[in-house]
Amino acid sequence: MKRVIAIADRAASVSLKLLVALNVLFFLSFLAMLLVATGRAHAEIPACTGTDMLSALRDSDPAAYRKIEAEAAATPNGKGLLWKLEKPGEAPSYLFGTMHMSDPRVTTLPAAARKAYDAAGTIVIETTEVLDQQKMMAALFKEPDLMMFTDGTTLSSLLSPGDAAMVNKALDSRGIPPATVAKMKPWMLSAMIALPACELARKASGAPVLDVKLAEDAKASGKLVEGLETVADQLRAMASLPLAFHMKGLVDTLKLGDKVNDINETMIILYQRGDIGMFWPLFRAATPEDQEDPAGYAAFEEAMITSRNKVMVDHARPILARGNAFMAVGALHLPGADGLVEDFRKAGYTVTAIN
């Protein structure tokens, strides 16, 4: 089948997986702090750019577009952001899929979600540590190897001279002095590079991602705020994958260049439509089958989504037992046979999509 994908060139699956991973991890909210610490954060917020890859694909390769649509349609629970959780003896609660971004299109709740959020007595997010950056960093510094190389290793020492020069150039263009991140683990650096300039600038100016906004508003209104993980838990998930995987992902993400804007724009558009089951089919279609690594893909999905979903359900149970909770987690955790919607059903809940 002819493959004409708007993100072009044969971008490696590793970089695409990492870009998606950034939207199931919640540690991004302190990237602004890291940028501000360099003293070179953007003074002004640039306009967001990027085009909808799916619209381009629909026009250029209808057969490929239909294949993506068919795979998304076959994904269990692939449509909808808001789900009602019901169990005998418990007051109903709600599960809502978020994007960990500060884009106004994301941070404005749909009407049904706003109604459920306003009525909830408890707001649950992935981790409450991001609400207190000093406490969060203190916790992370107990395990510094999750963020930094603690031996003689540097990022440059793991890269070819050409790739090292490309990384340094990309950092300079983002106002990040390479020397300040020379000891940073590649997954931390990938998080900065994979976000559009407008999103980085918003974070640097203090704009909260959706999850943080929900939690801060809840605290201000006297609601109880609970978390399901720690930031260290999330970083351990990233660290569990091979270092070579992350280094290749860093380089391949850089090679995407401005196409990162298209990927993020497309994800926001899909998110607004509630088409969360279309994320993975779209990105899988961007990589020819002969470059796909089934074992690596399975390890990635297990570490970043499936295993964490099970932990989230276990930690959510006592909170949901009190009833009237609004649980907001990354939307990519919801769909699929091993997604949170199915996991909660397995845990005895009746789970219903709310349009």
Rank of each mutant, 00 (worst) to 15 (best):
A111E: 15
R317S: 07
H100Y: 08
S240F: 01
L254E: 04
A72E: 06
A337S: 15
L235K: 07
A8C: 09
P335Y: 07
S221C: 00
K87W: 06
A56T: 08
G206K: 10
L85V: 07
H42S: 14
L159K: 07
A204I: 10
L214I: 11
N324V: 01
V14H: 12
G175P: 01
K259Q: 13
S55L: 13
A201F: 02
A63Q: 14
L282E: 03
A285L: 11
A298S: 14
D59V: 11
A70S: 14
P281K: 05
V167E: 01
S29K: 04
S55W: 04
T51Y: 09
E90V: 02
P335M: 07
M147F: 07
L57N: 12
L250K: 06
A91V: 10
K310N: 09
R114L: 12
A321D: 13
G97T: 03
I5V: 13
L214C: 09
A353L: 09
S13N: 05
D252P: 03
P62N: 05
D151N: 15
S160P: 02
S221A: 15
K310G: 00
E69C: 11
D258Q: 13
A179Y: 02
A201P: 05
L28N: 15
V311P: 00
A21G: 13
D252L: 03
L155D: 00
G152V: 02
M184V: 12
V351R: 05
R236I: 01
L320Y: 06
V14A: 14
G296S: 07
F245M: 12
E301Q: 14
M304W: 02
W280L: 12
V329C: 03
A139L: 03
S15N: 03
A232G: 12
V231G: 02
G249K: 07
V341Q: 02
I7Y: 12
P318V: 08
M267D: 08
V341S: 02
Y349T: 04
R322N: 11
C48R: 14
G336E: 11
L334G: 09
L243E: 15
A73K: 15
D163Y: 04
G227T: 10
Q134T: 14
P186Y: 01
L200F: 01
N261M: 01
M33C: 04
E302C: 00
I45G: 00
Y297K: 10
G78W: 06
L31S: 09
V36G: 04
F30H: 05
P288H: 08
G336N: 11
K79M: 11
C198H: 02
L57T: 15
A8N: 14
G121S: 12
Y65G: 00
T287M: 09
G274W: 07
A239V: 01
F149R: 08
S60Y: 01
H246S: 09
A197T: 04
K255C: 03
G339H: 13
S60D: 14
A353R: 15
P110A: 08
K248S: 11
V351G: 05
M137K: 04
G323E: 12
M312W: 09
S93F: 04
S102M: 02
V209D: 11
K248A: 12
G89W: 11
D61V: 01
M1S: 14
G227S: 11
